[in-house]
């Protein structure tokens, strides 16, 4: 009972911190984007200002919308992304801290795959309920993206889980704790590392698609379909979607880090930081984790969104269903064959 209370308290704290960190990382993202285009860029706290402003703006519910779905969808999006963030980050923090708890094996990759779908589905429901043709087009595009992204993402997850089932002797191969404590790169030959590289590449293409950023923001294309899914949203509900987007970006980049670069400070250097009898390694680990998340965010989202234009929806679907699926299967095969070939 006491452990459960601790988990709940940690989750709530993590959620509040996650929302702040997510918004802050968005500010960093905009600053970096400005830097890449040799601009000054907005202040780091700009996402907070935007949110503050949206909270005081009038909230319009369109007359021909399905009101309860229109109001419920942003709340559901924020709730599900919050659960996603907790499911991804909390087991990892437990692992970094080296403590055990009832939550440890609960963070399961399959659960995360399904949780990733709920924000997208609530966006789709909200879009269809808006009663605007633009939002309907956006919702249809989101359905296409959702279905095509699922395939390479599932293959990456299966590849990682297969590797874990080899490394951890078959115990909880889908658990995030197993993934974090056995980094995928350990004990790999050159072929396996190449395969892992292909998986990283695939997941890097999946990140902007899952978070709805250029070049895969067809569903929210502001110039062609008037912000698509969000066309009718204003005020508080738009702010909720902004929060959900920030939290989801943070959660997904955190998932990326946990899947492929889970090394803590002790894993990397082999010693712990002890100052005046207190062990500060955990604090340093959290800092390292945040830095890694920011690096992944900058490389996979900011740099890509500055460098590329929006793809057509058919091109995006083809890219995910054919090219990236093939790429991830190739990565899986390379990882699978690696121990067999190195053993020869």
């Amino acid at each position: 009972m006491r452990e459960l209370l601790i988990v709940i308290a940690f989750s709530l704290g993590l959620l509040v911190l996650g929302i702040f960190l997510g918004l802050f990382i968005r500010g960093i993202d905009r600053k970096f984007a400005a830097y890449f285009q040799s601009r000054v860029g907005p202040p780091l706290l700009q996402p907070f200002y935007d949110l503050e402003k949206l909270m005081i703006k009038q909230t319009i519910i369109p007359e021909n919308s399905v009101s309860w779905i229109f109001r419920g969808a942003p709340v559901l999006a924020l709730a599900s992304t919050s659960v996603l963030l907790i499911y991804v980050v909390l087991p990892y923090l437990y692992y970094l801290h080296g403590s055990s708890g009832p939550f440890l094996t609960a963070g399961d990759l399959i659960v995360i795959l399904y949780l990733l779908m709920i924000p997208a589905i609530s966006l789709i429901a909200g879009g269809f309920a808006s009663g605007s043709p633009y939002a309907t087009v956006g919702a249809q595009r989101e359905v296409v993206i959702l279905m095509s992204v699922e395939v390479p993402l599932a293959i990456v997850v299966i590849a990682v889980a297969w590797k874990m089932s080899q490394a951890a002797g078959g115990a909880h191969p889908f658990s995030l704790l197993t993934v974090a404590s056995n980094p995928i790169w350990t004990g790999m030959g050159p072929m396996g590392i190449l395969g892992g590289g292909l998986l990283v590449l695939t997941l890097m293409a999946v990140v902007p698609a899952e978070t709805g950023k250029v070049p895969f923001d067809q569903a929210e294309a502001e110039t062609e379909i008037a912000e698509g899914l969000l066309a009718e949203y204003s005020g508080k509900y738009l702010a909720l979607y902004g929060l959900a987007d920030a939290v989801k970006s943070l959660a997904f980049t955190a998932l990326f880090v946990v899947l492929f670069f889970p090394h803590g400070f002790t894993d990397l250097t082999g010693f712990r930081i002890v100052i005046a009898g207190g062990d500060y390694t955990f604090a340093l680990d959290i800092l390292l984790f945040i830095v890694k998340v920011i690096i992944v965010y900058t490389v996979a989202i900011t740099a890509v969104r500055v460098a590329m234009a929006r793809l057509k929806i058919s091109q995006a679907a083809k890219l995910f269903l054919i090219t990236l699926s093939m790429l991830s299967i190739a990565g899986y095969l390379l990882i699978y064959l690696d121990p067999r070939i190195s053993g020869l």
Partner: peptide, 12 residues
């Protein structure tokens, strides 16, 4: 954008 001004795609 450094003043927080940006173009949006919908009047809402």
């Amino acid at each position: 954008e450094r003043f927080g001004i940006k173009l949006v795609g919908t009047p809402r």
